[in-house]
Amino acid sequence: MAKPEHEITWKELNVGCVIDEPGNAAAYRTGDWRSQRPVYNKDRCIRCGTCYIFCPDMAIKILADGYIEHDLYYCKGCGICVEECPTDAITMVDEEE
């Protein structure tokens, strides 16, 4: 995976900042944008997968047993999963908490 962007020196950039490594956007931590994070209550979850479909960052993984897991490296804290979950199994808390 590519070097984290805050470590790249100007001499290491390709001519014209061309990116020649496919898929290296995966290295970008959109989780840095977050001011609130989702908290998952497995007991309320009915394994419908709605949150997984709606998450704009594909930051929700469906596990083998059908329950879900948030990937906080990418979750940018938009709260859409909270809004869409039919059973209120996800809530948002401030990052500091």
Partner: peptide
């Protein structure tokens, strides 16, 4: 070509 650069990288570009 023409990707974006965050403040962490723009100065280097």
């Amino acid at each position: 070509m023409g990707a974006f650069a965050t403040p962490a990288l723009y100065t280097e570009t």
